[in-house]
Every structure is written in C-alpha cells, then in structure tokens.
C-alpha cells in the first residue's frame, strides 16, 4: 500500500510539472515571443482557461503527500521553510499578475504585470528544478526526522548543504530549460504567424541546452548520490524510464525539424514524465534522503500513515481521480486548437 501511494504522489506531482510546466514555460518565453499587446493577449488567452486548474495538481499532490506520508510532509516543508515561503510569494505574484494585467488599458500597467508574470514564472521554474536536486542530493535530516537548511552554505553538496549548491543550481537551470522548451512547444502548437515562429525558434535552440544540461546532470549523479543506481541494478526494467526520456528527447529533435508542433509538445511532455519517473525510480523507497546518516532517511516504510487509512483513502482516490481525469480531458478538448485573439470575455473584466 505504501508503495502504491509513493507511485500516486509521484504521478500527481509529475502531471503537475507537465501541466503547470507549460504555463510556467509560457511565462518564461512570454516577453520574447509576444511583443505587441495583441500578441500578448493572445498568448495569455492560450493559458487563461487552464492555468488555475493546472495549479490544483500541486495543491492536490501536496494534500495527498500529507495524507500518505505525514512525517515526510512535516519534515520537508519545515526544512525547506524559506524556499517554500518564497515559492508561495512567487505563486501569489504570478497569479495576481495574470488576474490584473488586462484590467486597465494603460500600457505601463500592462508592461509592469507582464514583467512580474515573466520573472515569477522563471524563478519558479528554477526553484522547482533546484527542489528536485535537493531530493536527489539529500538533506541534513537528524535523528528526530527534522532538518532546516539555509539558502546556501558553501555551494558544495556535503553533509551540511544549503538549498543551493553547484548541483542544485545546475538542476535549477535544467528545470528552467526544460520548461522553457515545454512552454515554447505549447505556444507553437496554440498560435500562428509571428508568435508561432518565435516560439518555434526558442523551442529549437532550447533543445540543445536541455541535451547538454541533461548530460551534465546525469554525469554528476555518481558524485552526488551513487545510491540512485541501486534500484536500477536490482530491477533493470527501470531502465525503460530513462530510455523513454531519451527517446522523447530524440523525438523532440525530430519533430522540431519537421515543425510538427503537436507531436513536439507531446514529446516534451513525455520527456518531463521520463525524467521525473527515472528520478522517482532511483529514489524509492526514500522520500527524503539524510545526508547525515542514511539510517535517518525518511522512507515509505517509516513515514507512512496507517495501512487502514491508506486503504480507505485509496478507495476514494480512485473515484476522485477518475472524475478529475474526466473533467480535465473535457476542458482540454473544449479549448483545443489554435487560440484566437480574445474578443473581450470576462478575462478582461
């Protein structure tokens, strides 16, 4: 049951990164691909009906982590205190900028919120990448199962690392690069003309950056967390996940060359799922690895809620999740296709 819940939480968070990832990516490339006010409104219109729903995957994923592994939720959220509060502030600023941007006609007002939106999206992408780096590298969990990390110490991963060290910064940049390409691929699929041309350009150039950074991140793993290989050696079927990621990356190069936008977006979604899946396969059964003593690590065994609670939750999870998949498919199908320039719906208030 614990293993199943590990998979459920990992799945929820991976879907979150794929979905909210494209609207973060949209924010990162926003100022570059959309220059005029009409172009910017078109680009915003491509994410407006869905970004809020995408963010719910984070809240629901967090809620399910709390449900299944309360001890890991408590340790992780209090340990990354400063970083998480800043994530909250950035999420707030980003959401407000989307809500208020088109409220006034004033070009200065719009320019201001456009920049807030782009900057908050970029910083969030970096932070999420760095967060994944922290999970892989490990944190200084003590015998009571708690830790607290500063933003940075000496930028070296070690027994007392900061949230930022050279490895997690590398992962942060990797995260931003992957989401940039993901967002640009989304916009290439949803828009036409100049905006589409610029989005395709970003997506194409970004691919080389992703390829280089991914190689660097993989080469660093034996130094940072050699234990990540253990599950792969024990169950070689897990190698399918990195192979999927590799195939998706190759597919991205291929589709981008032929400008097949829909296939390229699907490939970049698959790339994200493959990368996160590979990480989860390597981390299991750990939720938080202790850099102090492996015995202090929080695992699915020592951090889980009661088996009876997990069984009961699984029953309603199946019902709720089916409903969620049904609405999400319905909404995405409804807003499928190229986005038109907005005609002044409620988004303009």
């Amino acid at each position: 049951m614990e293993t199943l819940w590990f998979a459920i939480v990992a799945l929820m968070l991976a879907v979150y990164v794929v979905l909210d990832g494209f609207d973060f990516g949209t924010g990162i490339v926003y100022l570059f691909v959309a220059r005029t006010d009409a172009e910017r409104r078109t680009v915003l219109h491509a994410i407006e009906p869905v970004w809020d729903g995408n963010e719910v995957w984070l809240i629901a994923g967090g809620g399910l982590l709390f449900l299944a592994f309360p001890r890991a939720y408590a340790a992780g959220f209090s340990g990354f205190y400063l970083a998480l509060i800043m994530v909250l502030w950035l999420l707030i600023l980003r959401g407000v900028s989307l809500g208020l941007r088109s409220h006034l006609e004033s070009p200065l007002w719009r320019e201001f919120w456009d920049k807030v939106f782009a900057l908050a999206s970029l910083l969030l992408a970096v932070v999420f990448g760095a967060a994944l780096g922290n999970l892989i590298r490990g944190v200084p969990l003590n015998a009571e199962g708690y830790f607290f990390t500063a933003f940075w110490t000496d930028f070296r991963p070690g027994p007392a690392p900061g949230i930022l060290d050279w490895y997690t910064v590398l992962m942060g940049v990797e995260g931003a690069a992957v989401l940039t390409v993901h967002g640009a691929s989304y916009l290439a699929m949803k828009t036409v003309d100049e905006v589409q041309r610029r989005a395709r350009l970003v997506a194409e150039l970004g691919l080389w950056v992703i390829a280089a950074l991914t190689v660097a991140a993989i080469l660093a793993i034996p130094v940072i967390q050699p234990g990540l290989r253990r599950n792969y050696d024990a169950h070689p079927i897990g190698y399918l996940l990195p192979l999927i990621a590799l195939g998706a990356l190759a597919g991205l190069f291929y589709c981008r060359r032929r400008q097949q936008d829909i296939a390229a977006f699907l490939a970049s979604s698959l790339l994200i799922l493959g990368l996160l899946g590979s990480t989860a396969w390597g981390l299991f059964p750990n939720l938080l690895i202790s850099s102090v003593d492996p015995a202090y690590s929080l695992t699915v065994a020592n951090a889980a809620a009661s088996p009876a609670g997990l069984r009961a939750a699984f029953a309603w999870f199946i019902v709720g999740f089916s409903l969620v998949v049904a609405y999400s498919l319905y909404i995405y199908r409804s807003f499928w296709g190229k986005v038109e320039a907005p005609s002044g719906d409620y988004g303009e208030y």
Partner: peptide
C-alpha cells in the same frame, strides 16, 4: 490528511 486530500481531489 484525509480531508485535505479530499478537498483537493
């Protein structure tokens, strides 16, 4: 955790 998870889902 049960009720907060249900709220999300």
């Amino acid at each position: 955790g049960q009720t907060l998870g249900m709220e999300g889902l």
